[in-house]
């Protein structure tokens, strides 16, 4: 709260102060009152009013400055009422009560909203688990039937499974608080699982997959990491080059502080101007748009999951000769002692 602004706001009070003071003094003069009494009256009138003026200013300044200061520092500004001391003036009390009521209503609204989201998340979890049962049954049915070209059916089932999984992890990524479990996980095992899951797609597209130097453990949630790898491999298959032999190379590098896992392909790559945005929601990029069937959600979800788990995820591509993804896992002794 600035003094100048306060003065401008109080122009009528100030005008009346001088006007009434002038009229009073003129009246005292007109009645030939004693000079010393005029001076005394002026002093009393002046100091009294000045005192009131400044008292009001500083009381308000203190309150409003605290208010705006707290507002600046708060992330959830609707909680500001909780941070204020009860002001010394009526307007302030009244305002505080209003702000408090607003905050309360906001919190209730948010709570209801949050509950709805939580219900939705729970429902999604159950829904995906339920949906996986008929998918699993169909997989078994095709396998048991043993008829000629089972793969064309199971391929579609896998796509269906991938989409349900993506929905599940989309929800999990947005409400990560209590859904993951970090422990020591073998990179080799997770890579094997992701590779097996994509085996038919990789073989059908003639991929050469090489996995080297991954006999390491990292601290992560195994299931989440498997999903992330699955998204990355899916992308490599989706954006393979039409000519030549498509390749995926996976390897890890370990230092005292971290383990880095690289997944490199020789696909169509990502244009430099698109690189900073590949982790954005629904982003498909110039190269992506040239191919059908890009939801642009895979890397977005992967990035969110990585953020929750505390892993780094970086992407590099020169726009024509392939893409390299790098996942970074911290070597945190604190967790190791815990587990």
């Amino acid at each position: 709260m600035r003094f100048g602004d306060y003065l401008r706001d109080k122009w009528l009070d100030i005008f009346l102060f001088f006007f009434c003071g002038g009229v009073l003094i003129s009246m005292l003069y007109a009645y030939k009152t004693d000079r010393s009494l005029i001076v005394a009256c002026t002093l009393v009138y002046g100091t009294g009013n000045l005192f009131l003026f400044f008292r009001d200013f500083f009381r308000k300044k203190q309150f409003y400055d605290t208010l705006s200061d707290n507002l600046d520092r708060l992330e959830q500004k609707y909680l500001v009422a909780e941070t204020l001391k009860k002001p010394q003036f009526y307007e302030g009390v009244y305002l505080c009560q209003c702000v408090y009521d607003m905050g309360k209503s906001m919190a209730e609204y948010l709570g209801r909203y949050r509950q709805e989201l939580e219900d939705f998340r729970e429902y999604m979890e159950i829904w995906v688990h339920e949906a996986k049962i008929p998918i699993a049954t169909l997989m078994l049915m095709y396998h048991n039937s043993g008829e000629g070209d089972v793969k064309k059916y199971t391929k579609q089932l896998r796509r269906l499974d991938d989409y349900t999984e993506q929905a599940l992890y989309y929800v999990r990524a947005s409400h990560a608080e209590n859904d993951y479990l970090i422990k020591e996980v073998s990179l080799e095992k997770i890579i094997r699982k992701a590779a097996l899951k994509n085996k038919d797609d990789l073989l059908e597209n003639g991929f050469e997959l090489s996995v080297e130097n991954v006999e390491k453990t990292v601290l992560t949630d195994g299931k989440w990491l498997e999903f992330i790898l699955n998204q990355i491999i899916n992308n490599s298959v989706k954006y393979k080059r039409e000519e030549g032999v498509p390749r995926i190379r996976i390897w890890a590098e370990e230092s005292s502080r971290r383990v880095r896992l690289f997944i490199e392909d020789n696909g169509i790559g990502i244009l430099p101007q698109d690189l900073p945005r590949v982790f954005g929601k629904s982003f498909t990029g110039e190269n992506g748009r040239l191919r059908a069937k890009s939801t642009g959600m895979g890397l977005y979800i992967a990035k969110k999951l990585c953020r929750s788990l505390g892993h780094g995820i970086d992407i590099d591509s020169d726009g024509s000769t392939g893409t390299t993804l790098c996942l970074t896992f911290a070597n945190n002794d604190f967790y190791r002692m815990e587990t």
């Binding site: 688990h129 998918i135 993951y180």
Partner: peptide, 22 residues
């Protein structure tokens, strides 16, 4: 499909843990 379920099952003495669809 949560890691917690797998860890719990294994700690209770499961020999393996496979998620549907397999």
């Amino acid at each position: 499909t949560s890691e917690a379920d797998e860890v719990l099952s294994m700690s209770y003495g499961a020999d393996d843990y496979i998620t549907k669809p397999y």
